[in-house]
Computed example of a mutant assay.
Amino acid sequence: MKSIIFDHIGKPADSLACIDSPLPEPGPNEVRIKVIAAPINPSDTMFVQNLYGIRPHLPSGAGFEGVGVVEALGEGVQMRTGMRVSFTSVGTWADYAIAHQRSLIPVPDVMTDEVAAQLFVNPFTAYAMVQDSGVSEGGWLMITAAGSAFGKLVIQLCQMRGIRTIGTVRRDDLNDELKALGLTEVINTETEKMAVRVREITGGHGVSCVLDAVGGHTASEALTCLAKGGTLFIYGLMSLQDPAINAGLLIFRELTVKGFWLTDWMRRVDSQTRQLVAQNVISLLSSGKIQLPVEASYSLDQIKEAVEHADRPGRWGKILLKP
């Protein structure tokens, strides 16, 4: 079988290789999955660079989620083979992957492979963060890097809840698409001053919450856009730079800065909450109310081209690997 591995830390295009590997055997409570498709997410490429919350043990597989068919069962697994499932693991960029049975989500027939491959990381994170934001109907929520796959999900979820959204971009070529998804206002951070525009848009009040994946100067500026008592959630660091935090703003506006990592959120909440989120996410995606566009698909042999495409600015959809 073919699998994507890396034996040194570095840029994904330089570090990743497609190799022939032995067919893996599932251990207790594990299953072997024949992979159909797996997305390239920022968390995947950060992992290869040792910039993620989970550290790689070299040599390591790559890819954290995907969709496939259960082919073999380990000891203690009570399910049937042949089921199509969304799953999470380390090493989903391969012909076959091993996953713990707790990570499996059965996929309804109406859901396409392209959507099912992206079922977990972005949709669950978006749903959980909009829920945790506490922004109610009619309130304002801002999302940085609004043109990302995650940003588009947040925009659509907020529109369904009646939450008004401001999205920041660095290019204007996706503005019409973002507005069509339900984004209320767009701010181009290359040509406009974020804080000034937010005050204009919100009548001087600011936004209740900001979801930021950029860090650095963008997160520092986003903090100044918060209304009194507002919250800045940081869930990524695309700039690879830490934000400078204005202590005076935190004190006198009673602001909160919080990190968000889906892995910890899943551990923190009870099983009933996890199941409810899963049901809601699956329902929204199956109905077509929430869209997860795919821009291109690549084979495992094309891993270098795939990760370079995933890193390209101005993408309108996810990049998938299809073994």
Rank of each mutant, 00 (worst) to 15 (best):
L174K: 15
K289M: 08
T112I: 03
T112E: 14
I98S: 01
Q272Y: 07
I5E: 10
D311Y: 11
G68T: 11
H205K: 13
S286K: 01
G206Y: 03
S283W: 02
D132M: 06
C158L: 00
E65C: 12
S208W: 01
M79R: 15
A145I: 04
F6N: 05
P59K: 11
N188A: 07
R84T: 12
L104A: 05
F124Q: 11
L104H: 12
A97L: 12
I98M: 09
P106I: 07
T273A: 04
M79H: 03
Q279S: 10
L300V: 02
Q156F: 10
P28S: 15
R102Q: 14
A219F: 01
I303F: 07
D173S: 15
R164Y: 12
V31G: 10
M142Q: 05
I282L: 08
K34M: 09
E192L: 05
R312W: 07
L183V: 02
G63S: 10
T168E: 05
R267W: 00
P42A: 05
L320R: 05
V85E: 05
T218V: 14
R161M: 10
A116E: 11
S299K: 14
A116Q: 01
V85H: 05
A213C: 02
S271G: 01
V277Q: 01
A195R: 08
F252Q: 01
A94Y: 04
E177V: 14
I251P: 00
T184F: 04
A296R: 14
L183A: 02
M1I: 00
A94D: 07
L181D: 13
A17E: 15
A126N: 06
S133H: 08
Q118P: 12
L321C: 07
L119E: 11
G66I: 07
G138D: 13
A13Y: 10
F47A: 10
T165D: 03
T256C: 10
D242I: 01
Q241G: 01
R80I: 03
